[in-house]
């Protein structure tokens, strides 16, 4: 359906990697901001992150535009991660930075 070669690879990568980035950043954000004990908030973030991941993959499948998919997934992921950094959550350490 109109997508071949690198554009298709890019779309699949957006779904799997971009979706993963968004799912994790939503999970980390919820863990930081939910009004619950730390362990409960982290667990809640974990439970919800999968719904975000699934939704992201399906949405990417629906738009079928690689560049748009990457932008729409990564921009909120960066914003949420930024909010967590501002709150003092050591997000970067978790990915080894």
């Amino acid at each position: 359906m109109g997508l071949t070669g690198w554009r298709l690879v890019s779309l699949i990568a957006a779904a799997l990697l971009g979706g993963y980035a968004l799912a994790n950043s939503v999970g980390i954000f919820l863990a930081a901001f939910l009004p619950a004990s730390k362990s409960d908030a982290v667990l809640a973030g974990n439970l919800v992150s999968f719904a975000v991941y699934v939704a992201a993959i399906i949405w990417v499948g629906a738009v079928r535009k690689p560049l748009r998919a990457w932008c729409v997934l990564l921009i909120p992921a960066f914003i949420l991660t930024g909010l967590c950094l501002a709150k003092g959550v050591d997000v970067l350490a978790s990915v080894g930075l």
């Binding site: 974990n46 992150s49 997000v91 978790s94």
Partner: peptide, 10 residues
């Protein structure tokens, strides 16, 4: 999703 735990617990 190991990053969610790691970012809050190290």
């Amino acid at each position: 999703m190991p990053l969610i735990v790691a970012s809050h617990y190290g």
